[in-house]
Simulated scan of single mutants.
Amino acid sequence: MIALALPASNDEGFVSPTLEDMHLPEILPWGAPTGEGFGKQMLLILISVIIISWFFIAAARKRQLVPGRLQFLGEFGYNMVRNSIGRDIIGEKDFRAFTPLLFSLFFFILINNLWGSIPLAQLPTTSHVGTAYALAGIVYFTWIILGIKKHGISYFKFAVVPSGVPMAILPLVVLIEIISTFLVRPITHSLRLFATMLSGHLIIMLAATGTEFLLLEAEGLLKPLGVLTLVGGVGMFLFEVLIQCLQAYVFTLLTAIYIQGSLAEEH
């Protein structure tokens, strides 16, 4: 955690980390003076794709009846997404076609979340809102296209006109359903992931800089408080690892729910 520490003090005392501290200099800058370019976030995304591809290709290579550890881990991860998310949410009839999408989303998000807890990397790429928007956008167009393919243009009626609603309040209900389904849903799907990873990483950065300041720069009775800050920071670090895994599961679970809703006969 200390490796996260930024310069924590100047002549005025402790300076807390900011959002700008998470945006590291680009590795291959272009488009100056905007600062755009190929940066650490993009590099980690590419590495995550390589790691995921290598792991599951290696796990599936031998296909032994009695699996080794690598094959066991691969099968466990695949079956967890396939059965616990795909089959249980979408249903026995339709889930198989969407298992590759759910599988890819879960492990891509999981690895890119966990970058924030890995030394030297220490940057969850999903804490950049563009990544969350792109993932949620893929899911958004997927369930809309599936709904149209299943029901035709009548899908939009199924999606926003609940059955059994009295005519007196139907216009208000339809307006609420349009906003919540086609506007709020993709925004919350992306921001839930982005905001959780961003806030968690900032808390870890704050704990690291606070520990550094109290142990190395503070004087008197404040210095022993650095030990408490360190212990609390370690606890928050472990909690953040749990949240990183949980958010990958939640994002994939919501994807399955949205797909199931598009394929359902009634809404």
Rank of each mutant, 00 (worst) to 15 (best):
F98I: 05
F98L: 08
F98M: 08
F98R: 06
P100T: 02
P100S: 01
P100E: 01
L101V: 13
L101C: 06
L102I: 09
F103T: 02
F103V: 05
F103S: 03
S104A: 15
S104I: 14
S104P: 00
L105V: 09
L105I: 12
F106A: 04
F107N: 04
F108V: 04
N112M: 05
N113C: 03
N113D: 04
N113G: 01
L114V: 00
L114A: 03
L114I: 01
W115G: 00
W115D: 00
W115R: 00
W115I: 02
G116D: 05
G116V: 01
S117D: 07
S117Q: 07
I118A: 01
P119Y: 01
L120I: 14
L120E: 02
L123W: 02
T125Q: 02
T126A: 03
T126Q: 04
S127R: 04
S127Q: 08
S127I: 03
H128I: 03
V129C: 06
T131E: 05
Y133V: 14
Y133W: 13
L135C: 08
A136H: 04
I138D: 05
V139F: 05
Y140L: 07
F141M: 13
W143Y: 15
W143S: 10
I144P: 04
I145M: 13
I145A: 15
I148W: 07
K149V: 12
K150M: 12
H151C: 14
H151N: 11
I153G: 04
I153Q: 07
S154D: 15
Y155N: 11
Y155G: 07
F156R: 05
F156P: 00
F158R: 13
F158V: 11
A159P: 06
A159I: 11
A159D: 13
A159Q: 13
V161H: 12
V161C: 11
P162M: 10
S163M: 12
S163Y: 10
S163K: 15
P166R: 13
I169T: 14
I169D: 10
P171E: 08
L172I: 15
V173T: 15
I176A: 15
I178G: 09
T181A: 11
F182W: 12
L183C: 14
V184A: 15
S190Q: 06
R192H: 08
R192S: 14
L193F: 02
L193D: 01
L193N: 01
L193I: 07
A195Y: 05
